[in-house]
Design a protein around this nucleic acid. Structure first.
Lengths: 213, 213
DNA sequence: GGTTCCATCACCCTTTTGTGGGATGCCTCT
DNA sequence: AGAGGCATCCCACAAAAGGGTGATGGAACC
């Protein structure tokens, strides 16, 4: 394959220059543009004809996420790699939903950047470890809700767990289910055993994450 | 981190042996089990106590996807890496929904296998290029971001809350954040105030449901 | 140079949970 | 009739969490 043409958008001067030279030094890629903001975005891309775009999220003016959206509307086939320090759901969501083809955390070292560029060029979707994991989890949660296991909880145990997820204490659960405090505790014991957890909190986490109840 | 304990399930004798020696030769990992099928799955895992499981999909008897499902029910915290020649949506889908933490195509070379094992051990979700891209595409179709408010939690409070929804106790949080037990409690108090809740459990529920942290 | 957060830690006391034993009666299946 | 699972309750002790109050140092903001 011929040299990979890369354009980068990054407002930090040092990082931009570093990436520029880093990419230029690779035999199989060249940096055909490096910009500090997204003014003139479309014209610059039209002129540079990049194979891959590296896009920072936090930038003055138009931010990287809006930029991806715009790029994808005009140049749907150019893959865009996000690079950012944010790894919260919202940024990941927005960036990926806007059409990004990869998501790198800035903690990634130089080698990873270059590898990611090659990867995305070849049809991959490079994502830093924690991001990939998060995407997977969201993926696993959102799709196929029918594939849930209920850990063989009995009806009553499910009721108790459901109340627990309402945020109630054992006493409140006893009240609202019309059973005694001790019975609630008893049910909790078997819930813990079946879910392999050792606390109220862990049970709630597991129940919510795996959509039991 | 201590040596990564790997167990592998692979019916092809040559590949199994190759992987066994390959893993064994790495200074930071050891292969504590290599099996040709999934009979006695649970007992073998209990005995080997692996940190990571490498699982082939196409196997006689129980296939790798069913196996993942079973493993995840009993050992939800052990990450399972799928390795297979299939890259159709159906296989990817089923494997990931069953709980796999990564998906490698067998075309990946030895280095990629080892790197993927390290990656998944550190919370990543290694996926071969085309698979990652496909997951991303499915993700982009399925998930929409929603608005969240963070209740103005401080950085530290978010960290504590994050640990909490890992299922940790106050003591464990104190340890892993390197602060004292009393400080954790102190942060918890302000978290409660800001979230308008009065217990550990309620805080976790709110955090998970509203995607804070 | 004071004010306001924030992160840190401490002490006291109460309440809630976790764990390990029980026990009883009611089903259902065999 | 017996076995097993389930729901129901009880007790006792230990561990964890909740609530109040207060103190210190640092950074940030006027």
């Amino acid at each position: 394959m011929s040299s990979i043409r890369v354009v980068l958008f990054e407002d930090n001067f040092h990082l931009r220059e570093s990436l520029y030279f880093l990419i230029g030094a690779e035999p199989d890629m060249e940096c055909v543009g490096a910009f500090a903001d997204c003014s003139g975005l479309e014209a610059q891309i039209t002129a540079a004809k990049p194979d891959v775009i590296l896009m920072d999220i936090e930038m003055p003016g138009m931010n990287g996420i809006e930029a991806v959206g715009q790029i994808k509307r005009v140049f749907p086939d150019i893959p865009v790699l996000m690079q950012t320090i944010f790894q919260d759901d919202e940024h990941i969501f927005n960036a990926l939903c806007a059409g990004a083809s990869g998501y790198l955390l800035k903690s990634a070292d130089a080698h990873h950047y270059l590898q990611a560029i090659r990867d995305v060029r070849q049809g991959g979707a490079p994502m830093s470890g924690p991001v990939a994991r998060r995407v997977l989890e969201l993926f696993q949660k959102n799709v196929k809700p029918e594939l849930r296991n209920d850990y063989e909880l009995t009806q009553k145990e499910k009721e108790v767990l459901a109340e627990l997820i309402e945020g109630k204490s054992f006493k409140m659960i006893a009240d609202s289910l019309g059973i005694s405090y001790e019975t609630v505790r008893s049910h909790m014991k078997s819930i813990y055993a079946k879910l392999h957890v050792h606390s109220n909190t862990e049970a709630v986490i597991k129940a919510l994450k795996e959509r039991i109840v």
